[in-house]
Amino acid sequence: MRAFDYVRADSAEGAVRDAAGGAAFIAGGTNLIDLMKLEVMSPETLVDINRLAMNGIEDTADGGLRIGALVTNSDLANDSRVRRNWPVLSRALLAGASGQLRNKATTGGNLLQRTRCLYFYDRASACNKREPGTGCAAQEGFNRILAVLGTSEHCIATHPSDMAVAMRALGAEGRR
């Protein structure tokens, strides 16, 4: 892993300020730390946002839920309202990863996680997503887990999230 500066954010504004230029936010870290070990990602600064108050699940006036970016996959899957009224979301979360990972992985991080395309992970291969302009080794490679629809000549990566599919089916929206 490449060296980095570690900063702990105590406000959202501070986190955005600290993240200017070459930084990555870290929450659960279950995807980012893995990618940093492999040096697929090497941020110069890590801004730890775990202490920010973004881990609530609130009822909204129109009968929906507002899910904080730092709500863990476990807390979201096990929320009694989600289990009762939006079970597809619980089921999608419980179908993914493991108990240990779901306890750490967050809602925001789940949406922002990187593709599992093998060529994105393999630094010896061409990958436009990892290094724009180098090409896409997946086009002619092992691409069974990759996309057949909505692709381009530059990239056929898929987003790996099960949770995102359920949220999309439920018409969820991302809001600031």
Partner: peptide, 28 residues
Amino acid sequence: DHGQCGACTVIVNGRRINSCLTLACMHD
């Protein structure tokens, strides 16, 4: 060392996690 095998599982604040996929400094 990549969060797949679970041999590193510990319990942090009551919850099981993979200790290989988190930085010690995040757990101050």
